[in-house]
Write a protein that binds this DNA or RNA. Structure first.
Length: 272
DNA sequence: TTAGCCCTGAGA
DNA sequence: TCTCAGGGCTAA
């Protein structure tokens, strides 16, 4: 379940390895992962130079010369990894990218195929809808803007944080963790939260995301960094995956409930 | 706003 | 063999 910190970690590592490099060949193994025509995906990227790597919410974009961008969304189990010529290709590997001057191949695999890849032009109108409709990045906006975005909404705070059109990049892990840090019950509606508490939530989100990026993200099931190493932030989770265990803050039991079809973990006494 | 669907592997 | 995990999309 790669969220903003996991995707940001990959983007940092991709910048170090492939920024400025030339794509020598792109191989489509399973075209079901593509939202673009497979033929043009390989044709229009061949011999292209990677000018820049960008992150928009949970999307990764490789900006190429020739006015093209390769977009990846990792869904739940999507991974980008390096494969040495001597390595055996992992099952469920759908795309291979070879670069001039790099021996290893960059691979895109996704066991559950919730992820996707596509090629677009560079004008924002051509971007994938998921990128075009993205809400603001939590780390880029002020507490005031964050409050404005949320206060008009009537849904439950947890569901709103997961909605990419409202705020970009949060998923189940970091929404639960930030709500716990801010002491807010995930079932609460923003209308019933004071401005001060929404500001606290914004601060908690930023703090959680920054710590997670510094830890290389959270490795729970599938997520690994480009070089196959795991992140470390999972050891600092306070509620996510801790249902039925004692809360580090008060010793009470952490509850796991379902809100709009998504699991939510929280401490009923610390979060009101 | 929310339920259901897609998809596959892990664990009961 | 069944249930669960969940990001994002669609339909109700």
């Amino acid at each position: 379940m790669p969220e903003l910190p996991e995707v940001e970690t990959l983007v940092i590592q991709l910048k170090q390895r492939i920024q400025g490099k030339i794509l020598s060949q792109v191989t489509v193994i399973d075209e079901r992962i593509l939202e673009s025509d497979p033929k043009s995906f390989t044709r229009d990227t061949r011999e292209a130079k990677v000018l820049k790597i960008r992150r928009d919410g949970k999307f990764i974009g490789l900006e190429l010369d020739r006015d093209r961008i390769i977009w990846f969304h990792l869904g739940m189990t999507g991974r980008l990894y390096w494969m040495k010529p001597s390595d055996e290709k992992l099952p469920h590997t759908h795309l291979l990218f070879s670069f001039a001057d790099i021996q290893e191949q960059l691979c895109f695999r996704d066991v559950r195929r919730f992820g996707r890849a596509l090629l677009t032009a560079t004008d924002p109108e051509s971007f994938p809808e998921g990128v075009r409709l993205l809400g603001p990045e939590p780390l880029d906006i002020s507490a005031d803007e964050f409050t404005k975005v949320l206060c008009r909404r009537t849904g439950r705070i947890k569901s709103l944080l997961l909605n990419q059109r409202i705020i970009a990049g949060l998923g189940n892990i970091y929404a639960d963790e930030a709500l716990h840090r801010a002491g807010i019950d995930p079932r609460k509606r923003p209308l019933r939260l004071s401005r001060k508490r929404l500001c606290d939530l914004h601060a908690a989100i930023c703090e959680t995301l920054k710590e997670a990026i510094a830890s290389g993200g959270s490795t729970i099931q599938d997520y690994l960094q480009l070089d196959g190493k795991g992140g470390n932030f999972q050891t600092r989770h306070r509620v996510y995956g801790h249902g039925g265990k004692p809360c580090a803050g008060c010793g009470g039991l952490i509850r796991k409930i379902v809100i709009a079809g998504r699991s939510a973990h929280f401490c009923p006494s610390c979060q009101q």
